[in-house]
Design a protein around this nucleic acid. Structure first.
Lengths: 145, 145
DNA sequence: TCTTTTCGTTTACATCTGTAACTTTTCAAT
DNA sequence: ATTGAAAAGTTACAGATGTAAACGAAAAGA
């Protein structure tokens, strides 16, 4: 079974709401409305619309609890992040992904454990790494770099 | 002077065209139309519309060459990639960025030089890395992890 | 010069997004 | 039972996006 939810079709605004629901596990619209207030100046209506759209994209499931709905995610935060990241990197030139990741490492606040983990993966990867990665910008030898 | 072009407002389709122009340095609309055919089944009209929108977003500059235009990028591929990456990572929980980068390392085809570069950066970073990175999903201690 | 290509410009149109007001339904408290 | 508050549902609307046809102008070939 392939991914039921396509996280790449969540908009930035929708993503903000998802973060709240991922963090809390589940939430009613009023909880979401309350929590989003700290970050965004949206009206209740706006939040409800976004929640509804997330439901229609199958990113959220609802369960009725009396008069209100409890929203819970249909995709994990981790899976969603993976999809987004993959989508973005798929747009980039193969040859340039490496330096982009390097920049990311440089610019991101990483824990000691994160770093050690990366070091382990890299050490292992080095053993079979190619001398160069081919560019795939244009078909044929005509490519960029 | 801040970034004149906001690459995060380029759509996926527009990005495809940018890649061609980045790779070639500059190109006429007919060159772009020809080259995109290998990847996308767009009509000439569609490509022209997208080029025009890129010009209106200041992502491309045109110089007239006889009857036609030569398009060239107003932002480097590298800067655009940086902006996109930064935008995406800004949406993620601080605490989870590390493992996301680790996955990226695992899933990306990297050259030996790329890997060594990352290793250097990481070794250096480890010396001042925090034990843990705080989650920033919700305001206050109420955060996720 | 007349015609055919080749570009660029204008117009189109459905869907998606950001943003929200207005309306209806349904608990909960008189 | 009545009413007020809370939640959900309906409708709206401008701008962005995907996708393109049609029209016009200019260059190149006949």
């Amino acid at each position: 079974m392939t991914a039921v939810v396509d996280a790449t079709e969540m908009t930035t605004s929708e993503w903000e709401l998802m973060r709240i629901i991922w963090t809390k596990g589940k939430a009613s619209s009023s909880e979401v409305i309350d929590l989003i207030k700290a970050k965004k100046d949206w009206t209740e209506s706006t939040v409800k619309t976004l929640l509804r759209r997330l439901v229609s994209k199958s990113a959220l499931t609802t369960v009725k609890d009396g008069r209100r709905f409890i929203y819970s995610p249909n995709i994990t935060e981790s899976d969603a992040m993976d999809q987004m990241t993959a989508e973005m990197f798929s747009r980039m030139c193969n040859m340039k992904k490496g330096s982009e990741i390097t920049k990311l490492i440089r610019d991101t606040n990483l824990s000691q454990a994160d770093i050690k983990q990366m070091q382990a993966v890299l050490a292992n990867k080095l053993r079979t790494a190619p001398k160069v990665v081919e560019c795939n910008c244009l078909p044929g030898k005509d490519s960029c770099c």
